[in-house]
């Protein structure tokens, strides 16, 4: 900037001089020095008040007893208390009418998503797309029914488990001990042809007889399945374990025995079960 018109009195120097270069003394404001001291005092208080010194197992606790873990516990308890009223409403409402209550449905969907990610995602996948042996919850095929009441029952009691006496239960016999190998080959060809997969016509015709004698009782004469027995629809495009020849044959010979633990009782509250059932119901497959 503008050249100094008048030379200020030469500023003081610190007296230090190296090779003719002097160091000006531009004194620090004293109040600034005091802020440094204040910071030191504050730091001393801090190490006494808060967890500070790392020891062998854990840090010193500090006289305020402050801990993030305890804070989270308090926050969780507060959130629980804040949700108590709407949870009670959710647990007592008419299941089929919840969808008409925008507030309750919105809450249930959000809460259900959290419950789902904690308890269900391990088997059914975080996006509910399922995996081999674990049903996809987004499609429109339901082994035990896809109405909100059906889903609620399945979540609460589980499938083929010992823990819950009301668990959904059915058992397919292993036909490897019952049918001749030739009959198995015929019935596999027949089942695969039902999904529009063209097979050897003579085997299919023979397989239809085997199917009607051994399988139709549960899977139905049109192989459309039966949700009351958890018998899958064999005529649709969805295969839980796979639709290739070897896999279908394996299923016929050895049978399948998929299990699901009950979420009712000790695990989840009624409100949580309803929430996750409503969440699953609105993923795209709900009936």
């Amino acid at each position: 900037m503008a050249k100094k018109p008048i030379k200020k009195q030469d500023p003081d120097t610190t007296g230090h001089e190296w090779d003719g270069i002097q160091e000006y003394n531009n004194p620090l404001p004293r109040w600034w020095l005091w802020t440094f001291y204040a910071c030191i005092v504050w730091a001393l208080w801090y190490v006494i008040a808060y967890p500070a010194w790392p020891l062998i197992n854990e840090a010193t606790a500090g006289y305020k007893g402050w801990s993030t873990r305890a804070n989270i516990a308090v926050e969780l308890a507060e959130a629980e208390a804040a949700n108590a009223e709407i949870n009670a409403r959710l647990a007592s409402a008419d299941l089929t009418a919840i969808a008409d209550d925008a507030e309750l449905q919105g809450y249930a969907t959000s809460a259900g998503a959290a419950v789902y990610k904690t308890w269900c995602a391990q088997c059914h996948g975080s996006g509910a797309a399922g995996a081999k042996g674990y049903p996809n919850l987004q499609d429109d095929a339901w082994l035990w029914g896809g109405t909100i009441e059906d889903i609620h029952y399945t979540v609460a009691h589980g499938i083929r488990n010992e823990e819950d006496a009301d668990a959904r239960y059915s058992e397919m016999p292993a036909f490897g001990d019952i049918l001749e190998p030739a009959q198995i080959e015929e019935v596999v060809n027949y089942v695969m042809s039902l999904s529009g997969d063209p097979q050897d016509a003579s085997l299919v015709a023979a397989g239809e007889t085997v199917f009607m004698d051994n399988c139709a009782a549960c899977h139905g004469e049109q192989a459309q399945g039966d949700i009351y027995q958890g018998a899958p629809n064999l005529s649709d495009a969805i295969w839980l374990y796979g639709g290739d020849y070897e896999t279908v044959k394996h299923t016929v010979v050895n049978a399948r025995y998929g299990v699901m633990p009950p979420m009712g009782g000790a695990e989840l509250s009624e409100a949580e079960i309803r929430a996750v059932a409503l969440y699953v119901h609105q993923l795209g497959g709900g009936e």
């Binding site: 996948g125 797309a129 987004q138 629809n233 969805i238």
Partner: peptide
């Protein structure tokens, strides 16, 4: 997640 879903038909 998933990118698509196969329906029964």
């Amino acid at each position: 997640n998933p990118t698509f879903v196969t329906l029964s038909d």
